[in-house]
């Protein structure tokens, strides 16, 4: 019986070594490619008909498009349009990474802190650069809420700065922790089924329930990651 942590192991499929750096194509990379492929087929394949009256799959692709478009419109507001493709890619990539990871025996690349942190860091650094380019020195006003008395700056600026700098970590840890804990729980509960014999039915029922919950969490966490990115982008573009 495999341990509950085994599912997170990164195993190389094709060894690649560039200048002493291990860039092997691993099971993690394979599932990333698969997620991207599914997204591409889902969005490009379903729209091939370009039907005026959409088919079921086309309708789903359009719904996903409109979900993210509304998210960007409502949370980023004016000036958010150029970042829509990035936000859309972020959402679909995380969503399908989470969902494909729920297939038994698969690998969940979003359960790896380095992957979620890399995405969060790109979002954070990108948004900070956008804010500085757009507002120059006025960008620093982000750390002092408008209307606060000047002497409160001594406390407020460090606090705001801390909360700003902790954003990529909270983004990364939230997704990573949700995925990891969910998969651990599934594995641990599943481990009880066979040894308990007839009474294994009990953990099996629990497993089905937890699995359903995990599907929901997979969607919600993709949504949360994306919507928080949108809110941070809104702040950088409009300064509060």
């Amino acid at each position: 019986m495999a341990g509950p942590l085994e599912q997170f192991e990164v195993k190389p499929i094709v060894d690649i070594n560039v200048g002493g750096l291990d860039l092997s194509f691993t099971n993690s990379s394979a599932w990333m490619v698969l997620a991207a492929t599914v997204v591409t087929f889902f969005l490009i394949g379903s729209m091939r008909g370009r039907a005026l009256v959409p088919t079921r799959v086309q309708s789903m692709a359009e719904l996903t498009y409109e979900l993210v478009a509304n998210m960007v419109r409502d949370n980023v507001g004016s000036g958010g349009r150029p970042y829509f493709p990035f936000i859309f890619t972020l959402f679909t990539f995380i969503l399908f990474g989470n969902l494909l990871g729920l297939i038994p025996g698969s690998f969940t690349f979003t359960s790896h802190i380095i992957v979620t942190f890399a995405m969060a860091a790109v979002v954070f650094v990108g948004i900070t650069i956008i804010g500085i380019v757009k507002h120059k020195a006025r960008f620093l006003r982000l750390f002092l809420p408008a209307g606060a008395p000047w002497w409160t700056a001594i406390i407020l600026i460090p606090v705001e700065l801390m909360s700003y700098l902790s954003r990529p970590f909270s983004l990364a840890v939230r997704l990573f922790a949700n995925m990891t804990v969910g998969h651990l729980m599934l594995k641990v509960i599943a481990g009880f089924i066979v040894p308990l014999g007839v009474f294994g039915l009990l953990p099996l029922t629990g497993l089905v329930a937890v699995y359903a919950l995990e599907v929901l969490i997979a969607i919600i966490q993709a949504y949360v990651f994306t919507i928080l990115s949108c809110i941070y982008l809104h702040e950088a573009l409009h300064l509060h």
Binding site: V10, P12, I16, L21, D22, L23, S24, F25, T26, S28, S29, M32, V33, A35, A36, V39, T40, L43, I44, M47, P85, F86, F88, T89, T92, F93, F109, H112, I114, V115, A118, M119
Partner: peptide
């Protein structure tokens, strides 16, 4: 495994971004 994961994330995410923004 960090280097490999970051590398492939950048490659795959970049490819997906291009496919989405240019075609889909």
């Amino acid at each position: 495994s960090f280097a490999s994961q970051i590398f492939w994330l950048v490659v795959v995410f970049g490819a997906l971004y291009l496919l989405m923004s240019r075609i889909a």
